[in-house]
Design a binder for these strands. Structure first.
Lengths: 141, 141
DNA sequence: ATGGAGCTTCCCATGATGGGAAGGTCAAGC
DNA sequence: GCTTGACCTTCCCATCATGGGAAGCTCCAT
């Protein structure tokens, strides 16, 4: 199976498959006589594993860890769970961050009449003429 | 005022101030005789405007738009609101995406006993031995 | 044999940010 | 006055995951 079919079957683009191989996330693929990468069932399962992990937001580094555990039949599930929990905390932090932005911004939006007149609480808040918008002081990333 | 003080006072790093100038988000800063960038009150207000916008998650492109509207005293607030609403939709999409990840992953985590034994529903789900974890088929980012 | 689809490698771009090197400048203390 | 250390300058490189595109080779069907 060539890289294009593997890409279609796994949902990982050919570009990314090559990249994953380049950074050592995937082993070197076998090659045909003419240098085409060749993929089999086992490779497909690995590619799908990676795609599902990406769908859950795991970084490629974390996926390297997951792949290692997956391939180690003696892994303690404790380790998998720990890795997943760390990622869960990451997701929680991101969610909080986005939710705060959303709260602050949707408040501002609801205060802006949005017509032809120039006065605008959104711009006022951004320029610091701020009454109390929920925008704290420093503290961004 | 040199760039370091402007950075401290605005909450935007010196590195980023130079970068914003480089991409045209900020006008060329005035220079001292010896080539040091000089900043005044007005520049500080602009830098703070940018920082607050970043804190709400606006991209630098969007901030360019916001700055333009801010500096245009004849802007219709309608335009500011539209820009903000577009960003709110973006935040909503991101939130949904993260929330789905969190839901799927926290379900898996709660199913994993996390002890010394190797069997693990997290890995099973990632490898596709999947019963019904909420992980849909293709459809990533 | 020809054409088009698919493969190869290589380089570059994105977006926001930071790290660090090499060298010039400023101000305080001796 | 000279030294020292903090600060500034520009320039290049890295991150993270992904994609675009060029130049050139291969494969298969007509």
């Amino acid at each position: 199976m060539n890289i294009g079919s593997a890409a279609k079957a796994s949902g990982v683009s050919a570009k990314m498959i090559r990249h994953y191989e380049g950074i050592g996330l995937l082993p070197q693929a076998g090659r045909s006589d003419t240098g085409y990468r060749q993929y089999g069932e086992k490779d497909l399962r690995t590619l799908q594993f990676i795609r599902r992990s990406r769908d859950l937001g795991f970084s490629l580094g974390e996926i390297q860890g997951l792949l290692g555990l997956w391939q180690d039949r003696a892994r303690p599930s404790r380790e998998v769970k720990a890795l997943a929990e760390r990622h869960l905390e990451f997701l929680d932090r991101k969610l909080d961050e986005l939710q705060s932005m959303k709260n602050a911004l949707s408040h501002l939006v609801s205060c802006c009449h949005g017509d032809e007149r120039p006065d605008c609480p959104i711009l006022e808040s951004l320029s610091g003429e701020n009454g109390s918008t929920g925008l704290g002081g420093h503290g961004g990333r």
